[in-house]
Design a protein around this nucleic acid. Structure first.
Lengths: 347, 347
DNA sequence: ATGAAAGCGCTAACAA
DNA sequence: TTGTTAGCGCTTTCAT
């Protein structure tokens, strides 16, 4: 195998000098550095990261842990992460729980293999036991939108999101507002939808609006799921809400499709709002609460990289304060003031 | 740091024996093995993969290279890959080109860092130069749906997919069939859409059907893109196709949405077919050509794992024959025989 | 600025 | 079956 010693030989220097010249650490004269670099380039040499890692203790490798690569939110965060990490020269090792399928293995085995310089978790909920085991690795952790004890986290205020969405509808004059949540999620993940619902409920309460139990439904975060769930809700021509607040854009789109199939006009007969700013929203004119998903990934990566280059980590002496992520209403055409005749006129 | 030597000490054996007991390679008596395992468990020991890799030359780590994690096709393949790889005890290092943003860095630097036991590329098109550089790593490669010289590949017959989709429409009696392709893709990726279009053209030709240039449009694989692109095509009330063949489900959905917004009934006034079996298709009743995307990932992983455990690799002596992946029509409600009055009746 | 040498933590001959 | 020993390929003191 082509090793650094071959480069050293070719450049007529010692192995140590070659290493210094290539890594940039330690002092090497301008001319030798160039000679070594040239030799390395010519031979097509690449350092062995295994060896390098073993010697330095750092591996230029970040672990990313999430529940489902396959869902828009997560793959978009991932995109933000990869961008920053690649630019910084880090490999990204992906651990996809696939729901709960790989959860235990990953937490108890893969993450402990000491090949990571840091870990980013997305949307995870970790118990104390899991968290301390991970923290004992002594490497920096950052979590996005999750709940992991003792770890620096970036959080959107989910409660505020729910409230904001509901208040948008309320301010338009709606009084009959339903909510579609995604609580069919596993207990092991961050209960995003629940907090959003609570925000919605708080807004409804402040406005003194009635909250009918049948107007609070649960789905599964998908278009298909919400479509089915909400069709019955909208099927009743007399007791229909005039607006629906959804815990995600995908569900909101399901609602819009269900409404269309029932012959209801959006927004004339039904206003719909979601959360995420999913790209599919544009074609439906979906009003939403943008949470800058890709930026979440970028910021998490930067936060972690910061921690990695910090003078030295105060080994969990400082309790990390959560970093709050921004959100913003994007008003489009799926929401409007309720029509004067909320109940259908049969013509 | 907690090392294997501590375990050895605790178990009262030599470091070598501890290593054998933990790795399962080499012979160790039942009793010592248990003793060592117990000691390791109690101390919470995990091997250092850097050290282990350096010693063995294998890293239990597979690289996956793709153009966009963020797109449904790729994240779904990825899901199939992670499932198998985690089960086999392999880490998965993700290299996302993000279009062309990271392409060069990844190919010229990251992939050459010698920390991978194998590589899987998805949808990539690689030139001879890049390919040979990668092959020179001496590790097994598998490509899915791409074109990489000298590498084992899993391929769907894209031409056949295009033909099949078109033939489905033709067999229903359609004569005015348009095509929406995704050729706005970068030249550096596998030109899936182009082959599908050629399949469509072949089918049209065999059936002796007219191919109007204005019925062959290009889009970008997204719902939004296809929606916009196709709206003008469908806007003409006199020279409208009765069916549209799309190179992906997402574009097909864009077409359906555009049709609806123009007041056209699907399938009564317009039949639409896509490719992929995207989950969103169900709510639209979209007829499609399933290509078993997640299975593609699983099979690629298995193929690579096979190569890794093979007696020994004949160092590129055998030209790997491509493995053909299955496809299947899934007929749903977006396609039907054309109505007898293809042109609109103004009532 | 450079070289010699020790060692990162583990595995794999080779002996016993 | 077990222990001894010599590396895996690189980095990094410590001399010079």
């Amino acid at each position: 195998m082509l090793g650094i010693k071959d480069v050293a030989l070719a450049a007529g220097v010692s192995q140590a000098t070659a290493s210094r010249a290539l890594s940039g650490r330690g002092s090497v004269s301008q001319s030798t550095r160039e000679r070594v670099r040239a030799a390395a380039a010519e031979l097509g040499f690449q350092v062995s990261y295994h060896a390098s890692s073993l010697a330095t203790g750092r591996s230029r490798n970040i672990g990313v842990v999430l529940p489902h690569v396959n869902r828009w939110y997560f793959s978009t965060v991932l995109e933000g992460l990869t961008r920053q990490l690649i630019d910084a020269g880090y490999d990204l090792t992906l651990y996809d729980f696939q729901g709960d399928r790989h959860r235990k293995t990953v937490l108890n085995d893969f993450l402990l293999r000491k090949r990571l310089d840091g870990v980013i978790t997305v949307g995870l909920r970790l118990g104390d036991e899991d968290a301390t085991r991970l923290l004992s690795l002594g490497i920096p952790f950052v979590s996005i939108g999750g709940s992991v004890p003792g770890i620096t986290s970036l959080l959107v205020d989910e409660h505020a999101i729910g409230r904001l969405a509901a208040e948008h509808l309320i301010s338009l004059g709606h009084k009959r507002i339903a909510h579609v949540g995604g609580e069919h999620e596993s207990k092991s993940y961050f209960q995003v939808s629940r907090s959003r619902r609570e925000g919605y409920q708080a807004a409804m309460e402040s406005a003194g609006l009635e909250q009918r139990p049948e107007w609070s439904v649960l789905s599964d975060y998908t278009v298909n799921g919400a479509y089915t769930t909400v069709k019955s809700l909208l099927g009743d021509p007399y007791n229909r809400p005039t607006a629906i607040c959804c815990a995600s854009d995908e569900m909101a789109i399901g609602v819009i499709l269900a409404a269309r199939d029932l012959g209801l006009q959006v927004p004339e007969q039904l206003s719909v709002i979601g959360v995420d700013k999913h790209p599919l929203g544009t074609v439906f004119g979906l009003t939403t609460v943008d949470q800058f998903v890709e930026d979440q990934g970028r910021r998490a990566a930067l936060t972690l990289l910061d921690a990695l280059s910090a003078p030295h980590i105060d080994d969990s002496i400082s309790l990390p304060a959560p970093i709050e992520l921004p959100v913003r209403i994007v008003a489009r055409s799926s929401t409007a003031a309720p029509s004067s005749s909320p109940n259908p006129t049969f013509h």
